[in-house]
Design a protein around this nucleic acid. Structure first.
Length: 295
DNA sequence: AATTTCTCCTGCAAGC
DNA sequence: TGCTTGCAGGAGAAAT
């Protein structure tokens, strides 16, 4: 499930597209695309930059609209090159492709010679993702203003500010993109485990423990950075634009480990539904009523 | 107003 | 073996 680290890895693997010109847009499923102007307005525009906030990628163009890419549950962006070093994606990766862009690659130097063209495939079997067009940077700013601070840089103070008075479980709050942008079910469980905080802790109560809230913010930043380092977590679908899987799932200490012993204390990890999501935690390392913080 | 529940969708796994 | 059922999950809408 693409969360911030996977989305960032996709963004980075797409960076070679900067400078390319979009020469064609094929929409196979109209309901995969929303927004104004029509996505065909991309034709002739040059990809100027790839930005990210939380789990959203923004494709900025020169002379065309901005496109927000949301990967949802199973979204992939695959770059298929033709020409000297072109490779073709496997047959299975050709199903559920809802939008394709034809791009004319940027010319940067002469070796190796760039492929004559490439295609960017937006694939999403479960179709929880989509593309949204925006007219201006102002629209993007407005849209991203609804998101909380990006998980890579969120501070304890920012977390405390948005959680003060919130009567939700901390896990529910972490999944809320207006609190922290980019955290999903996997990294919420991993960060709470790393910080030694029960997912059921009331957000407002956690806020009263200044040390704990800063520990949690630090855990979020660290886990997300480590996951990017490992290329993200591939459970089933996730691949970057070059078709590479991520290795971070091997380092998960909580997510997906319910019923197995805690790597820190050996207690059997507990599984329950918290915030409508399957949640795994260590009842001993993440006590629901915080012990007296070290004596 | 804040919070929870519902809904969308497909592919895999488990159970019979 | 082949069917049915259940579950996974991001995010916005709808309900509480």
């Amino acid at each position: 499930m693409p969360e911030l680290p996977e989305v960032e890895c996709v963004r980075r693997s797409l960076l070679p597209l900067v400078g390319s010109r979009i020469t064609g847009v094929l929409v196979r499923r109209a309901d995969f695309v929303t927004g104004t102007p029509p996505i065909q307005a991309l034709i002739g525009a040059e990809i100027a930059a790839l930005d990210r906030r939380g789990k959203q990628i923004a494709v900025l163009t020169q002379g065309g609209p901005i496109v927000i890419v949301q990967l949802g549950m199973s979204g992939q962006v695959l770059v298929e090159s033709a020409g000297p070093r072109g490779e073709r994606n496997s047959q299975t990766l050709r199903t559920h492709v809802h939008v394709e862009w034809a791009v004319e690659p940027a010319r940067r130097g002469f070796t190796p010679p760039p492929p004559s063209f490439a295609r960017v495939l937006f694939r999403d079997p479960r179709r929880f993702g989509g593309l949204t067009t925006l007219t201006s940077q102002r629209d993007l700013n407005e849209r991203w203003a609804a998101l909380g601070p990006d998980g890579l840089v969120i501070t304890g103070d920012q977390l405390a500010e948005s959680l003060a008075g919130s009567r939700r479980a901390i896990k529910a709050a972490l999944l809320d993109q207006s609190v922290v942008a980019g955290v999903g079910n996997i990294y919420a469980d991993e960060a709470l485990f790393a910080a030694g905080i029960s997912p059921r802790t009331l957000a407002s109560r956690l806020c009263r423990d200044r040390e704990a809230i800063h520990r949690l913010a630090a855990a979020i930043r660290t886990i997300l950075h480590q996951a990017i380092e490992a290329g993200g977590s591939t459970l089933r679908d996730y691949l970057d634009a070059d078709g590479r899987a991520g290795e971070f799932a091997q380092q998960h200490l909580a997510y997906g480990r319910g019923g197995q012993p805690c790597t820190r204390c050996g207690t059997i990890l507990k599984t329950a539904t918290v915030a409508q999501r399957t949640t795994v935690w260590c009842p001993r390392c993440q006590p629901s009523r915080a012990r007296h913080p070290r004596q």
